[in-house]
Write a protein that binds this DNA or RNA. Structure first.
Lengths: 213, 213
DNA sequence: CTCGCGTCTTGACCCAGGTCAGTGCGACGA
DNA sequence: TCGTCGCACTGACCTGGGTCAAGACGCGAG
């Protein structure tokens, strides 16, 4: 995004938070009026099917944008829930869309973010083993944290195992077992929700089929 | 899209085709310079992993747009292949992006299409049984064909079983078996690639968990 | 300190769907 | 008319990961 876009954005930003863990930021069906950038903390998005089973669609780290998939229906298609204490920057969507018309850099950035999310969802939908999914989850998280200046090798999982499982389309028990085996094999260090990637290259090669392309 | 946008689009459209079945329209890695609307025929998009296994990402019917997921990397992330004789309208992306800046209706339409594709990929990635996947595939196809003025209840599958299987993350054998059972149960008529939906309501209720939300 | 609760782990068992190995059956060319 | 070639179908068997049922482990409240 160019300098010009960033300067103009200040006029339509609304800082929100801190929002405590467990709070809904928006709910499926709410009228869509804004996207938001995570400033601190972690947000999960999920939908709940008729039978009440939750499906976690994604986790959003500081610097990442939530709400984009709501554009085409005018209301949010999923819930967004704070996993820990969260601070956001809200951008009114009508205003940002108008601004994007004047700023090609901003328009490009929005197309870019949307297009990236398609790729992410497509990767998840591939048929992959539990090992591949979990390795890819760890490697992806590590890279995204590193991109924001956090440690790539040691980090805290802000989400419970059930959410990881739901996001990867696995049973929570499977997540436990695979993490356990990765630990036994010396690929990771693990204590409760603290993770250390001891063999990033090995994990990346396991994750390769999922993360590549 | 508003009238004004449609009129201006004429200046940057390039009609392409007929392209014979089996031809690559673009390949993964090709420089991204255009999106295209399918005018007639069917296009599949797919990626091929390191081990040479093809994963079908989507099927595109007349009226639908291919190439959007390429925006964020500047090159196509997948192959697009004609399944039968195909005619396209190509839109230069740089030009259409500039035009979108001047036409809020067009910008909205592009955001909309991107956002819709995210929803589609997310649905596919859910954990669903083979029955749900195949019912959802048939119902979705029927609806999209109907939206373009084709029969909703009788249609021709332009893709081989292996492509359907790959797209739904199933084995081709499973596709065969489930279609067979749907036929035995009187839900569909099936002969080779000709399908008739005999019980659209029943299929829709099977597909519900996948198509809803 | 310890009680209680929510999260996580572990083990035993089971099944949907994958894999393998043939068999059918049009479509098309000679 | 007959090969033959490539999808499509079917049956027998196998397995990754889901399910069920106990525990174990922290952690906060009192």
């Amino acid at each position: 995004m160019d300098k010009c876009a960033l300067r103009d954005l200040h006029v339509l930003v609304e800082h929100v938070g801190p929002i405590p863990a467990g709070t809904h930021i928006f709910r499926a069906g709410d009228r869509f009026d804004a996207i938001a950038a995570v400033r601190s903390g972690t947000v999960k998005t999920s939908r709940v099917d008729r039978e009440g089973r939750e499906q976690v669609l994604g986790f959003y780290l500081p610097g990442e944008i939530i709400g984009l998939s709501a554009i085409h229906r005018g209301c949010y298609p999923c819930n967004a829930i704070a996993l820990d204490s969260v601070q956001l920057c809200r951008f009114s969507f009508p205003k940002i869309a108008i601004l994007a018309s004047r700023l090609p850099g901003l328009q490009k950035k929005l197309f870019d973010l949307l297009s990236r999310d398609i790729g992410y969802a497509e990767r998840l939908s591939g048929d992959h083993t539990a090992d591949e999914r979990i390795a890819a989850f760890l490697v992806d998280l590590s890279r995204r944290l590193a991109a924001r200046g956090f440690s790539a090798s040691r980090f805290h999982l802000t989400m419970p195992r059930t959410d990881i499982a739901s996001h990867l389309r696995l049973a929570p028990e499977t997540v436990s077992r695979v993490l356990r085996r990765f630990k036994d094999e010396g690929r990771i260090g693990l204590r409760r929700r603290e993770v250390e990637l001891k063999d990033p290259a090995g994990l990346a090669s396991l994750a390769e089929r999922m993360l590549t392309t």
